[in-house]
């Protein structure tokens, strides 16, 4: 069907045919069954579908699956290694950074990329970095704390 693509997702090679119009998020959810990446809107506003393409946070509803050909993709399912939670996942759990959990994967993917460029952010910088991710449950209060937790943890573990 359509175009052949080869994508490395969470360390595993996938290849197959996709329709030209298939969005990356639909490919991940429907074709690969990675339903941890969510769709919350149709205007690339909410950030629920954020994943990493070659390490950079990207909204996977803004990209076609064919554009991911040859890329390394990380989704929320690929964050924990050997059963150990990523510090960001740990932060969200410890600081009650999630309620319904729907925006959480996208929030964490955005935050992880953000901490790469700004490992010691201020509260304002964190809030600014989350502009492209909506959460309706937490009022963002504990999401900020979760990211601070992760930042501290990643600092001390270096």
């Amino acid at each position: 069907m359509g175009h052949m693509i080869k994508v490395n997702v969470n360390g595993k090679e996938h290849s197959g045919g996709v329709e030209a119009r298939t969005l990356l998020v639909d490919y991940l959810r429907e074709d690969l069954g990675l339903t941890g990446t969510h769709v919350g809107c149709d205007t690339s506003s909410c950030g629920s579908c954020t994943i990493h393409i070659d390490g950079k946070a990207v909204k996977s509803c803004t990209m076609l699956a064919v554009q991911a050909d040859g890329c390394n993709v990380t989704t929320v399912e690929g964050l924990a290694t050997n059963g150990n939670l990523h510090p960001m996942q740990e932060g969200f759990k410890e600081e009650h950074g999630l309620q319904c959990g729907f925006c959480t994967p996208g929030m964490m993917m955005t935050a992880i990329d953000f901490l790469k460029t700004n490992p010691k952010p201020s509260e304002d910088e964190i809030r600014h970095a989350l502009e492209g991710n909506f959460c309706r449950c937490t009022g963002y209060h504990n999401i900020v704390k979760s990211i601070q937790y992760a930042a501290n943890k990643m600092q001390t573990s270096v």
Binding site: G36, V39, G101
Partner: peptide, 23 residues
């Protein structure tokens, strides 16, 4: 006590199961 939530594990690892995730 502020017991950490038991449901969090599935949500932070992408294993939550929302209606659209069901096939």
């Amino acid at each position: 006590k502020s017991i950490k939530r038991v449901e969090d594990k599935r949500f932070i690892t992408g294993q939550g199961r929302y209606t659209d995730d069901i096939k």
